[in-house]
Computed example of a mutant assay.
Amino acid sequence: MSEAREREEARLTRHAGLGDLELLTARYRDHAYALHTHDSYVFGVVVAGAEKLRINRRSYLAPAGSIIVVNPEDPHDGEKGCEAGWAYRTCYPRAELMREVAEDLELGHLPMFSHGVLVAPDLADDFVQAHRLAVAGRAMEAETTMLMALRGLTRRFADRGGRNPSADDSEAARRFRRYRDLIEADLAGTFELGNLAEVAGVTRFQVIRDFKRVAGMTPGQYLRDCRIRAAATLMRTGKPLADIAFETGFADQSHLTRLFKSMRGVSPGAFREAD
């Protein structure tokens, strides 16, 4: 798996036969991902160097050959884990695709993964091969090999009991839903901790604790993440970036571009042009 490059580069493509599956091929030396989330899963294999990352509250080092797995909505970041940086291939399967995998395995629930970095050379090789075929546009072969790669990862590493929703009924989770609804109702709005505290009838310190406990982020990190996710959805419509920046609460288009690259690894232009 030798794919090192002297300069940073990233290419995003999409595979229609796999639910418009997004696939990222990237080589980073100094790029660092800001803490963010996806509504999809993240599966990737480090093919050169090493990545240091946090998933939820756990820190990992993923050397070459490692498989990275992130569940939907789990906050995560990433940066170089060695001087040379890292190269990797990732994809972002949506719940519908993973539900198909789960049904074939008769799991009875969407698969969830407790460990963010896995060691399985055979599955890593299968995933990289499937990714290469998909990026090369070999549709039928890519569809077959990627489905089997995802099935293999799920069969071997998914939690058999699914996710434990222990925090979902907590007071913090109920307050958090109020914060979330307030933010999502007006992403371009100006928010202060006092606004969030007032809607839940708690102190600002409690707001900070609730975000850390439920979302694994500070309120500011969560707000930026919501705005970037909304902006990504609008980018698929062809709306001008300046308008998207205004609608989602960014100071201007350049502000949106900087934060988007820090969370998605590619520029808004590259994200839009992915085929």
Rank of each mutant, 00 (worst) to 15 (best):
N195H: 15
T203H: 05
A48P: 02
T190R: 15
A48R: 09
G161P: 01
R209N: 11
K52Y: 11
G161T: 07
Y60P: 07
R160H: 11
S59C: 09
R177K: 15
L21E: 13
E141W: 07
H255C: 05
L61H: 04
L241G: 04
G19N: 04
T257Y: 08
E22L: 14
A34D: 14
A242S: 14
R155Q: 14
S170K: 05
R57A: 10
S254T: 00
A120L: 09
A251S: 14
F246R: 15
N56G: 10
N71M: 05
A136L: 10
L18M: 12
M140Y: 08
D243R: 15
G108A: 09
V266M: 00
E103Y: 02
R204Q: 14
E273L: 11
V70G: 05
A232I: 03
T203Y: 04
A173R: 02
E143C: 04
H36F: 06
D186E: 11
D181S: 13
D168K: 03
I68T: 11
R89V: 15
R58C: 02
T37C: 02
Y60D: 01
G238S: 11
I183M: 14
A185H: 07
G249F: 05
L187H: 01
M217H: 04
V101K: 00
A95G: 00
D39A: 14
V214T: 01
E73K: 13
D125E: 14
V47D: 13
A34L: 14
R138S: 11
D168I: 01
I68C: 01
V70H: 06
M98R: 07
K261Y: 08
T37E: 06
S40M: 13
A136W: 07
G116D: 13
S170L: 11
V135K: 08
P72F: 09
G249P: 04
R264N: 04
Y88Q: 13
S59D: 15
T90P: 00
R29L: 13
A167P: 04
E247Q: 14
E171R: 14
A134K: 08
R54S: 15
V117P: 02
R180C: 00
L61D: 02
R99M: 13
A251H: 15
A64S: 13
A245P: 05
D30E: 15
P268K: 09
R209D: 12
A62T: 05
P93G: 09
T145W: 12
A48L: 04
T233Q: 12
G49Y: 06
D104F: 08
G49T: 08
A124C: 00
R224V: 02
E184A: 02
A87V: 07
L24N: 07
T218H: 02
E8C: 03
P165S: 02
T25A: 13
V47C: 12
L241W: 03
Y28S: 03
A173I: 05
G78V: 02
P121D: 01
C91P: 00
T25N: 14
R213W: 00
P111W: 03
L196E: 01
V117R: 01
V199I: 12
Q129V: 11
D210C: 04
F205D: 11
F191S: 06
S59N: 12
